[in-house]
C-alpha cells in the first residue's frame, strides 16, 4: 500500500511541475539574465526611485486595506459568531453573496459609486457635507474602499472560526469573576481570537499585495507592483526586470507566511494552541 501511495501524487505532480514549479524556475533564471549583468535588475529595483515609489504604494495600500478589513470584519465575525441557526446562515450567505460576483464587476460597481457624479458624491453634496465632489479615483481612497469591500469576507471567515472555537464557558467564567461584558471581551474573547486575527490579516495583506484588477481600474495615477510587472512584461518587454520584481513579490509572500507559521508555532509552544488554518 505504502509504495502505491506515490501514484496518488501523480496528477498533482503532472499539474504543478510544468505549470507551477517550472514557471517559478523560469522567472528565477530570467531575473538574472538581463543585459546589464547578473543582479543588475535587483540593484535597479532597490535604487530606482520610481520602482521604490511603486513598492511603497503597494505596501501602503495593502496595509491600509488590512487595517480597514480588520476594523469592519471583526465586529461582523463577532456578531455572526453569537448568532445561531438560521440567522447565522443568512449572515454568512450575505457576506459571501458579493464574493460570487467577479472582481472586475465589483471594481466596476465602485467605479460607478465613487465617480465624480456618482451616488456617493451626490449624497454627500446633497446633505451638504462637502462642497466639491471628492475625487476618490485619483487619490487612492476609492481603491482602498473597493479593495476593502472585496477583502472583508477573507478576514471574517478565519476570525469567525476562531471565535466559534472559544469555549463559551470561558467568558462566563470571567463574568462570574466579576467582569462586565466589555472586560470579558478584553480579557478572554479578544486574546483567544488573536491567532485567527493574525491568519486573516496575513491572507488579506498578501492578497492585497498582488492585486491587479482593482488598482488598474480605480487606482488613478497610483501604480502598484502587479501593474508595474505587467507593464514591464507586456508593454516594455523588459522580462528580466519584470521577473526580478516577481521574485521579490514571491519571496515577500513566502516570508510573510513563514512569519505567520513561526508565530503559530511559538504560541502553540506557549500552550495557547488554537486551530490554525495552515495547521
Amino acid at each position: 500500500m505504502k509504495q502505491r501511495s506515490f501514484l496518488l501524487y501523480l496528477p498533482v505532480a503532472l499539474l504543478l511541475t510544468p505549470f507551477f514549479l517550472a514557471p517559478m524556475a523560469v522567472i528565477g533564471t530570467e531575473s538574472f539574465s538581463g543585459q546589464h549583468g547578473i543582479g543588475a535588475e535587483y540593484v535597479k529595483v532597490v535604487t530606482d526611485q520610481g520602482i521604490r515609489t511603486v513598492l511603497y504604494n503597494t505596501f501602503y495600500v495593502a496595509a491600509m486595506v488590512t487595517i480597514l478589513s480588520l476594523l469592519i470584519g471583526y465586529p461582523i465575525a463577532y456578531v455572526l459568531a453569537r448568532l445561531r441557526g438560521r440567522w447565522a446562515t443568512i449572515g454568512i450567505f450575505l457576506i459571501f453573496l458579493p464574493f460570487w460576483a467577479s472582481t472586475v464587476i465589483r471594481s466596476f460597481a465602485w467605479m460607478i459609486l465613487l465617480g465624480r457624479k456618482g451616488p456617493v458624491n451626490s449624497i454627500l453634496l446633497g446633505i451638504g457635507l462637502i462642497e466639491d465632489p471628492i475625487r476618490f479615483i485619483d487619490n487612492g481612497l476609492g481603491l482602498m474602499i473597493a479593495m476593502t469591500y472585496i477583502m472583508v469576507p477573507f478576514i471574517v471567515v478565519p476570525i469567525l472560526n476562531g471565535l466559534r472555537a472559544i469555549d463559551p464557558n470561558l467568558p462566563r467564567a470571567a463574568a462570574v469573576l466579576g467582569a462586565n461584558p466589555w472586560r470579558q471581551f478584553l480579557a478572554v474573547t479578544l486574546p483567544l481570537s488573536m491567532p485567527n486575527v493574525a491568519v486573516g490579516c496575513t491572507i488579506v495583506f498578501v492578497t492585497s499585495l498582488g492585486f491587479f484588477v482593482t488598482p488598474s481600474l480605480l487606482g488613478g495615477d497610483l501604480t502598484v507592483v502587479s501593474m508595474l510587472i505587467s507593464e514591464q512584461a507586456n508593454r516594455l518587454l523588459d522580462w528580466p526586470l519584470a521577473s526580478a520584481l516577481a521574485i521579490i513579490v514571491l519571496l515577500l509572500t513566502i516570508v510573510i507566511f513563514a512569519l505567520l507559521r513561526l508565530s503559530q508555532l511559538a504560541s502553540r509552544r506557549r500552550g495557547k494552541a488554537r486551530s490554525g488554518v495552515f495547521a
Partner: peptide, 15 residues
C-alpha cells in the same frame, strides 16, 4: 491560492 497571479503569469507565459 496565496501567490499573486501576476507572478505565475509572467513565469507561465514563456512555458
Amino acid at each position: 491560492a496565496v501567490l499573486p497571479q501576476i507572478v505565475l503569469a509572467i513565469g507561465l507565459f514563456p512555458i
